[in-house]
Design a protein around this nucleic acid. Structure first.
Lengths: 337, 337
DNA sequence: TGTTAGCACTCTTATCTATCGAGTGCTAAT
DNA sequence: ATTAGCACTCGATAGATAAGAGTGCTAACA
């Protein structure tokens, strides 16, 4: 891969990212001032195709980058993108308009990311599964109901209403609350099993119906697959020419509705804290995402980690997308909320 | 509107709901055994069109129902739909497969509704804004952070991390927690204003930086527009022939992404508890929903109210949709969880 | 030997045309 | 009041044609 090929590949990819049209030799020399004739470009293009970096939708059309082409571009050609003043300005305005600190609202963060990148944004709060229970208690709400709240060591809070059996008064609820808090505090989630709960139940002196319900609830709260995925900007992709076909859109959205799958995708990269991970087309490993790319990064927002993803067409503006993410990470880690 | 016209309108609407194709006089007599010739039907159809119940996409095509036609159908023609054993079976299987009680998870409920109706399901928890604070406390998490939890009288729980200033120990956090709980408990949300908070601050003897942060947080938690809207089945609509055009889909989804608008839509009907409300096409009042209908109902799930909506094409199977909703309401109110 | 002009060829896209068929409205007969 | 018959409308479908962008290959050139 000599310097000239890199140059040409770069030009082709940048053109294609903007135009979404296969780029031919003539248009390429017209747009970029390369001191070469179309015929020469054609030869180089043929070479790049043989090497697997380009592909031809059909015999007599221009070339488009292959996933491998994008990969090479991202790894070896792409240069850092400096956000324009207009872009910075817009972003700061959007941030100011939100009002609430972003750490309070993953939805707002998702909205911001989608607006700024014009792709789909995904936000997941990575689950440490070696958590322990930090606090658990019962807050009476009415004569017949209370709220059970569990605080986990990563700062997550789970809660749900429980109904109180007839004849159980506030003081008994309080006693139970104190009891389970004393006994479950500090316990690892992985140690909360039915054996432990049985032991506690035997030890407890009060209303058994109530403690039964609480334990059932605790298990549901803690082990229900409740990791949240927030998404925004789904419609952005509908503006991209690769999704002018409803069937493709349907497949894509169907996959997006299966949160577990998407969460797994983002999970895989949530480890490295300060870099970001780029998956291109087939690398994502999902049929309906073959024409997409996914950029995943981990952020720190006021003490808690957040994993975010940007899903766009493979023809995504990688440099700019990464630029935005880096800028936001910088902004948040230096005190922006 | 005589009996025969009703019969014909009914037949046309039912046909169109199934086929999504304009229905002509010949096909109508073929499919339904009406003892009339196509010519007679044609005359009746022309009348029904004059009356505003039908419309013709173009001069030489069959008729489709107008919004007014659907309205008349829903109000005066439609009969109760009895779920088939297969449908009941499927629904019960889906419910059993969830494992968690639905009251724990609006997402699961949304998924169920979408799967069962094959339309878009929307779930909102109606916000009573005359709530009071039932409980507020701080749970230390690490040396430098704690979780602030607020329980509201309707059972909603809001929480967020706060960072603890250097040198503030657990006992001081505890003191603050007890203090704000004692002073804010029972206070109406509408009475939590900066004047009250200033008074409390003056009264409090401990670390002022911390209480400042807590108060800021409380205001954000309580007044941020955080009413949640959960949606599922968006892809279902992509199967409907009226959405084979991406532009329409884009407009629809764009509107759906604006949660506030949708919430307002559902709010308007959350008052009547036991009936359900049907909005057809233009009645919804949103440009991009002109080809859609919305069925809104309010449910009671283990003590708390939930508003749910089903959004489908105007050509929706109204009777069946309503049948599902009624069955589910019955199921949940009679102890199903 | 690398580069380029020229040319024949390929393949997609847009446009036009003709045809088909489902459906209508109207008239006249029952 | 109903219906058979008929002329007419209009969208959908299928070829056919032309335009255009682009290629690969060959031969000439520096």
């Amino acid at each position: 891969m000599d310097e000239r090929k890199r140059l040409i590949l770069n030009a082709i990819i940048q053109d294609y990212i903007c135009s979404a049209e296969p780029v031919g030799s003539r248009t390429l020399v017209k747009r970029h001032r390369i001191g070469l004739s179309p015929a020469t470009i054609r030869n180089e293009m043929a070479d790049l195709e043989d090497m697997g970096y380009l592909q031809q939708p059909h015999t007599s059309s221009g070339r488009i980058p292959s996933p491998r082409g994008y990969r090479f571009y991202v790894n070896s050609i792409m240069e850092d993108y400096i956000l324009t003043p207009a872009e910075l300005n817009r972003m700061e305005k959007l941030i100011a308009a939100v009002g609430i600190p972003f750490s309070h609202s993953p939805r707002q963060l998702a909205k911001l990311l989608a607006a700024v990148t014009s792709y789909i944004s995904l936000i997941a709060e990575p689950s440490d599964n070696i958590q322990e229970i930090r606090h658990i208690n019962l807050i009476p709400l009415s004569a017949s109901s209370a709220i059970c709240i569990v605080v986990l060591s990563d700062g997550n809070v789970k809660y749900h209403a429980v109904s109180i059996p007839e004849g159980v008064g506030p003081q008994e609820i309080d006693a139970l609350s104190t009891f389970i808090n004393r006994r479950l505090q500090g316990i690892l989630l992985s140690d909360v099993n039915s054996k432990l709960l049985q032991e506690l139940k035997a030890e407890f002196a009060g209303n058994l119906g109530l403690i039964d319900e609480i334990f059932l609830l605790v298990r549901h709260l803690l082990f229900a697959n409740t990791q949240e995925l927030v998404m925004d900007g789904a419609t952005n992709l509908l503006n991209e020419p690769e999704f002018k076909d409803v069937d493709k859109v349907r497949e894509l959205f169907k996959t997006l509705e299966q949160n577990e799958q998407i969460l797994k995708l983002m999970e895989a990269d949530s480890r490295r804290l300060d870099d970001l991970d780029i998956k291109i087309g087939p690398e994502i490993g999902l049929e309906s995402f073959t024409d997409c790319s996914l950029v995943v990064a981990t952020f720190t927002l006021t003490d808690h980690k957040v994993t975010l993803g940007i899903l766009g067409p493979s023809r995504m503006h990688y440099a700019k997308t990464i630029g935005f993410i880096r800028w936001l990470r910088e902004y948040f880690s230096s005190g922006g909320s």
